[in-house]
């Protein structure tokens, strides 16, 4: 594989990993709120978060493009105040991947939180622990496998993301080219050998991710 191909693989892997890390605190917070609390508008938020799972990724990408473009609400603000451009940069890739994989993280983490006996958290409180301590010493450790499983799923989803990414970030070689974008482009240009090499890499990455996630799930069942 050429240096250019390695660069694509490397970029895809780290931007996927970064998006997973960036959405982690938000995903856990939302999952915890959904699992442990009743609040007005809960079902609306639940639905909104899951929308990217079922909407055409290109449509989600279009919404992001309009929001984060220079004339969009968020994009305009970031451009004017921080001189930060999102669309057609690696940051656009990051946002597209994050939004697309967010529901997978929230779902896994939520199930993991719901499986925890609420009595454990309550009794920890009677022993003097505040909410933060309860979360980090009881809730998070007990949900750890579910959270890790969710992170792996999110990462795997991010690795293969295509539709939203191409809308928000385009396919700029050396800047926003991810594995999927490059495979599509090389097939379009008739560079089949190139496409197959990237295909091989994607398969290996996906296999490792899914296998690890399955392994974690088996561990969880085994520990009960």
């Amino acid at each position: 594989m050429s240096a250019e191909e390695w660069e694509i693989v490397w970029f895809t892997a780290w931007v996927s990993a970064l998006s997973t890390v960036v959405i982690l605190p938000f995903g856990l917070a939302v999952a915890w709120l959904l699992a442990r609390h009743q609040w007005p508008g809960k079902s609306i938020i639940e639905t909104l978060i899951s929308l990217p799972l079922v909407m055409p990724p290109v449509a989600t990408g279009l919404i992001l493009l309009k929001m984060f473009g220079r004339r969009g609400a968020i994009g305009g603000f970031l451009h004017d105040t921080l001189n930060l451009d999102i669309v057609f940069t690696w940051r656009g890739v990051l946002i597209a991947l994050g939004v697309m994989s967010f529901p997978l993280l929230v779902r896994s983490a939520r199930v993991a939180f719901e499986e925890i006996n609420p009595r454990l958290e309550q009794i920890a409180r009677t022993m003097g622990a505040g909410e933060v301590r309860v979360f980090f010493t009881i809730t998070a450790p007990l949900a750890l496998r579910g959270i890790l499983g969710g992170m792996i799923l999110s990462f795997a989803r991010a690795l293969g993301e295509f539709g939203a990414t191409i809308m928000v970030a385009g396919n700029i070689p050396g800047q926003t080219s991810t594995l999927s974008l490059s495979i599509f482009q090389s097939v379009q240009l008739g560079q089949d050998a190139y496409a197959f090499r990237l295909l091989g890499v994607s398969t290996v990455l996906a296999f490792i991710a899914v296998w690890t996630s399955e392994w974690l799930m088996r561990q969880r069942k085994g520990s009960k």
Partner: peptide, 12 residues
């Protein structure tokens, strides 16, 4: 609960 100083052993 955390400031009550009450020890609780629940059924489970």
């Amino acid at each position: 609960a955390r400031r009550r100083g009450i020890g609780y052993v629940p059924q489970d």
